[in-house]
Amino acid sequence: MKLFNRVPAKVRTVVAPTDRVLTYAEGPDGYVIATDRALYLGGTRLPWFQVDRGVWDEKGLTVVTTAGESYHALLPEPGRIPEAVRERVTASIVVNQYVPLDVRGGVRLVARKTDDDRMIWEFVFDAELDPADPGLRALAEQALEETRRSFGI
């Protein structure tokens, strides 16, 4: 009987010294590693506050970042990776509030906690709205200030 689940040296050498390995799985393209601070896909480190979502299918894991970048990892046997991704992404979100801006739509205000306990806010405008519209940006900024005040952040 195995009393301790030791992390293989191959996995430990990939992660930053400040990261604690939660779980890992090996795929044909290398390891996928979930730590307390980031997700490692091959040679890429994605801090949890930069991960918007993870999607699973029969081919493996697809991760989309808050910047809209997409990463894919083949994982025939994902182990606990799906649960870790879901839990860590959810834990990074402090505020997630939708605010109507005008009759055309609104904006989702999302605050994420970084590794060093800072808050990063992002605006996620409805698809039919132009995020570059200065009037909408001003309304979104005003909504953000009201949201920050109401949450005491």
Results as ranks from 00 to 15, higher is better:
residue 34 A to N: 04
residue 65 T to Q: 08
residue 2 K to V: 09
residue 126 D to A: 09
residue 52 D to V: 00
residue 131 P to N: 09
residue 31 Y to G: 02
residue 56 W to H: 04
residue 80 R to E: 11
residue 149 R to W: 02
residue 124 V to N: 11
residue 65 T to L: 06
residue 57 D to E: 09
residue 138 A to Y: 10
residue 29 D to L: 06
residue 94 V to C: 00
residue 66 T to K: 02
residue 122 E to V: 07
residue 45 R to M: 11
residue 53 R to A: 13
residue 47 P to W: 06
residue 130 D to Q: 08
residue 150 S to D: 10
residue 43 G to T: 11
residue 151 F to L: 01
residue 69 E to Y: 07
residue 62 T to V: 13
residue 6 R to M: 10
residue 105 G to V: 09
residue 132 A to M: 10
residue 91 A to Q: 12
residue 18 T to M: 10
residue 40 Y to H: 13
residue 113 K to E: 12
residue 145 E to V: 10
residue 15 V to M: 06
residue 116 D to M: 02
residue 127 A to T: 11
residue 86 R to D: 12
residue 96 N to C: 08
residue 4 F to V: 15
residue 45 R to E: 11
residue 102 D to E: 10
residue 100 P to M: 01
residue 91 A to E: 14
residue 12 R to S: 14
residue 129 L to A: 07
residue 88 R to M: 15
residue 59 K to L: 12
residue 37 R to P: 00
residue 149 R to M: 04
residue 93 I to N: 06
residue 126 D to S: 09
residue 152 G to E: 03
residue 24 Y to A: 13
residue 26 E to V: 02
residue 113 K to I: 03
residue 50 Q to R: 12
residue 49 F to Q: 03
residue 116 D to N: 11
residue 133 D to N: 15
residue 121 W to N: 03
residue 96 N to E: 15
residue 82 P to R: 11
residue 109 L to A: 07
residue 61 L to F: 10
residue 1 M to C: 08
residue 90 T to N: 14
residue 54 G to N: 03
residue 84 A to D: 02
residue 66 T to D: 01
residue 70 S to L: 03
residue 43 G to S: 13
residue 62 T to M: 12
residue 31 Y to L: 02
residue 66 T to W: 00
residue 19 D to N: 05
residue 38 A to W: 01
residue 53 R to Y: 02
residue 142 Q to S: 13
residue 43 G to E: 14
residue 48 W to R: 02
residue 26 E to N: 07
residue 138 A to E: 14
residue 118 R to N: 12
residue 57 D to V: 09
residue 60 G to P: 07
residue 92 S to D: 04
residue 147 T to L: 09
residue 13 T to W: 11
residue 12 R to P: 00
residue 33 I to N: 05
residue 123 F to T: 00
residue 108 R to V: 10
residue 38 A to P: 01
residue 127 A to E: 14
residue 36 D to T: 10
residue 35 T to K: 02
residue 40 Y to M: 04
residue 76 P to F: 10
residue 119 M to Y: 15
residue 70 S to W: 00
residue 107 V to C: 07
residue 10 K to N: 10
residue 101 L to A: 11
residue 141 E to K: 14
residue 120 I to L: 15
residue 43 G to I: 04
residue 48 W to L: 05
residue 108 R to H: 08
residue 150 S to L: 04
residue 77 E to G: 01
residue 92 S to R: 02
residue 71 Y to C: 03
residue 131 P to K: 09
residue 84 A to C: 04
residue 83 E to V: 00
residue 94 V to Q: 09
residue 75 L to V: 09
residue 88 R to V: 01
residue 122 E to I: 10
residue 101 L to S: 10
residue 56 W to C: 03
residue 4 F to Y: 13
residue 141 E to T: 13
residue 5 N to P: 00
residue 73 A to D: 07
residue 146 E to A: 13
residue 91 A to S: 12
residue 66 T to N: 03
residue 133 D to Q: 09
residue 41 L to K: 03
residue 27 G to K: 08
residue 74 L to T: 15
residue 137 R to D: 02
residue 128 E to H: 06
residue 65 T to S: 13
residue 24 Y to S: 12
residue 146 E to F: 01
residue 4 F to W: 14
residue 124 V to D: 13
residue 100 P to V: 05
residue 15 V to W: 03
residue 62 T to L: 08
residue 134 P to M: 11
